[in-house]
């Protein structure tokens, strides 16, 4: 079986984020990046299948600049077999559809039985790329998986509103997007990292994929007009002190304003 895992490199959860000079994205210089946490669960799900089924190949795919290599090496160190890196300035500024087109082109060349992706990215939060990719490929998909089983067909428990779970069954080839916490993500071991040095990273351009002019900022239907921190709300009062003091002050306020 061949599994493709889509991973995105996003700012590390501990990184300090500032808006860039143009006010259109964050300032990316000198901050730390990591594999999108949702994608880490996607990768772990693929690796667990590989551990169970001999002969399974896990291919990780990512789009982005040179720094993305470190995330791909980490994925290879965790146990993925090889990587595809779409490294091309022409892909910059792609919206979800552009990203999905690039991934679809890679998927067509790879023809995986199963595609895993995080259900959304920690930076964009759109949750659109996975379903779009499945639609472009014409394969079934399901989203926000919290558990995954493969006994012939694929069985997924997915998260719904209000804590409800839904069980979905899919035939391969299909695409599953993963929720965080669905599994315990492994660390790349030193042995794995040393072995990863010898694993191939296939670097591709947008033109290699036959998508020249179809992706990137110019082709994007969604553009970020402005990114900003909302001004602090007026009229808010922060109560300070010990828990008892704060509770006392809060009760006082409620009475004072005649809210009860």
């Amino acid at each position: 079986m061949k599994i493709m895992v889509c991973i995105k490199q996003v700012p590390h959860q501990d990184a300090r984020l500032d808006v860039n000079g143009a006010g259109t994205w964050i300032q990316e210089e000198n901050i730390k990046f990591e594999i999108n946490p949702y994608d880490q669960n996607a990768l772990e799900a693929a690796l667990q299948l590989k551990d169970k089924e001999a002969g399974t190949e896990v291919v990780v795919v990512s789009i982005g600049p040179e720094r993305v290599t470190q995330s791909l090496r980490t994925a290879l160190g965790m146990g993925a077999d090889r990587a595809v890196h779409v490294k091309d300035g022409a892909a910059d500024g792609s919206d979800s559809l552009g990203t999905a087109k690039i991934l679809a082109a890679v998927a067509k060349a790879e023809s995986p039985d199963l595609i895993f992706a995080g259900f959304m990215s920690d930076d964009g939060n759109l949750a659109a790329t996975g379903p779009m990719l499945a639609t472009l490929l014409g394969i079934p998909h399901t989203t926000t998986a919290v558990s995954f089983q493969k006994n012939g067909a694929i069985q997924v428990e997915r998260e719904l509103e209000g804590g409800a779970l839904e069980v979905v069954e899919l035939n391969t080839p299909c695409l599953v997007t993963t929720q965080t916490g669905m599994n315990q993500v492994r660390y790349a071991s030193l042995k794995g990292i040393m072995a990863a040095k010898k694993k191939p990273i296939d670097v591709k351009t947008v033109a290699d994929l036959g998508l020249a002019g179809q992706v990137g900022a110019d082709a994007a239907k969604i553009k970020i007009e402005k990114l900003y921190t909302p001004p602090k709300g007026q009229g808010a009062e922060i109560l300070s002190g010990s828990v008892d003091e704060v509770v006392g002050k809060l009760v006082g306020k409620i009475k004072e304003l005649g809210l009860l």
Binding site: E34, T69, Q70, R73, T74, G77, Y187, A188, S189, L190, I193, M194, A196, K197
Partner: peptide
């Protein structure tokens, strides 16, 4: 080096 960075980050995350 790249593998040193990947390793350092993995040990840091574990720690």
């Amino acid at each position: 080096a790249e593998e040193e960075r990947v390793f350092r980050d993995a040990v840091r995350a574990f720690a």
